[in-house]
């Protein structure tokens, strides 16, 4: 019973991390129709930069912020000068961004080396919290859940309740009409892609504090993020939330109950879902 609850918390805290990464991915697909396979590399880069900042300044909060901010110009340049040139050709986008991810991954390996590195967390977050019922759990992961709920809520409010969000949603529905009524869609693209890069970089620092950072981590986390958006539906923020929860819980219970087959536990339901709803839970035909 105890370990069942423990796994649930494990799953939810992993879901919290996945949401940070998948929300950016899904938003940039929704608006710009861009499939960015370099998103995992943004995560890794952000994580490494945040690690260096945290080591240098001793402040974890600065590391999280800096890791996220540092990826914005990188993402902007890649978006502006490389991805934009592929137009709507998803095949070209996938190949191009995989190539970018290879380059970034190799550069990161050169700078930060091949060992697995852990972003140092502040002392206050290192301890454990005792829950009612005698369950002891690392404090860091609780803070992560709270943080991610906060980010998710802010994103949701931004997306659903503000004018910028309304314009973005209109852009997701019909880009041409939005630019035809005089809205600068290009500026909107820059904004959303900056937000996506920021979220990915921040996720790297936050995730690097408990999953560690190492060469290849970018692909592992990207696949989880892909499964999240496949479950939830590409382009849907709500889908990313639900998808992250499903994936996080399936992964935690899979690892616990069937360690050798945990990938089946994760991908099996996904395959079945796709047979009946190819566009995910919240995905729309189009």
């Amino acid at each position: 019973m105890h370990s069942g609850i423990l796994q649930a918390i494990n799953g939810v805290s992993f879901a919290a991390l996945l949401f940070l990464l998948a929300s950016g991915f899904t938003l940039s697909f929704g608006l710009m129709r861009v499939v960015n396979m370099a998103h995992g590399a943004y995560y890794l880069f952000g994580g490494y930069i945040g690690l260096s900042i945290t080591r240098y300044t001793g402040s974890f909060a600065l590391g999280v912020l800096g890791g996220g901010l540092a990826v914005i110009p990188l993402g902007y340049l890649i978006d502006r000068f490389l991805i934009r040139r592929t137009g709507e050709n998803h095949l070209a986008q996938v190949l191009l961004t995989v190539g970018i991810a290879f380059v970034l991954g190799d550069v990161a390996l050169k700078i930060w080396g091949g060992d697995s590195l852990k972003v140092p967390t502040p002392i206050e977050l290192r301890g454990a919290i005792e829950l009612p019922g005698g369950i002891i759990y690392p404090a860091y992961r609780f803070v992560l859940i709270v943080f991610s709920v906060f980010v998710g809520l802010s994103l949701w409010l931004l997306y659903r309740k503000t004018q910028i969000g309304a314009v973005v949603r209109a852009g997701v529905d019909d880009r041409e009409i939005v630019s035809a009524i005089g809205i600068n869609i290009d500026r909107l693209f820059v904004l959303v892609s900056a937000l996506a890069s920021f979220l990915a970089g921040m996720a790297g620092v936050v995730g690097g504090a408990f999953l560690t950072l190492y060469p290849g981590a970018e692909w592992e986390i990207l696949v989880y993020a892909l499964v999240v958006v496949i479950f939830g539906g590409l382009g849907s923020l709500e889908g990313a939330m639900i998808g992250a929860l499903i994936v996080g819980l399936l992964d935690a219970y899979g690892r616990w109950l069937l360690p050798e087959f945990s990938y089946f536990v994760l991908f099996g339901p996904m395959a079945v879902l796709l047979l009946f709803r190819p566009r995910g839970i919240f995905g729309r035909e189009g």
Partner: peptide, 23 residues
Amino acid sequence: GVYFILITIALGYIIWGAVYRWA
């Protein structure tokens, strides 16, 4: 289109996970 690409990536990882973890 893009859904096919993403799904085949995920399907590919099932086999990778199986050969890697089913030691």
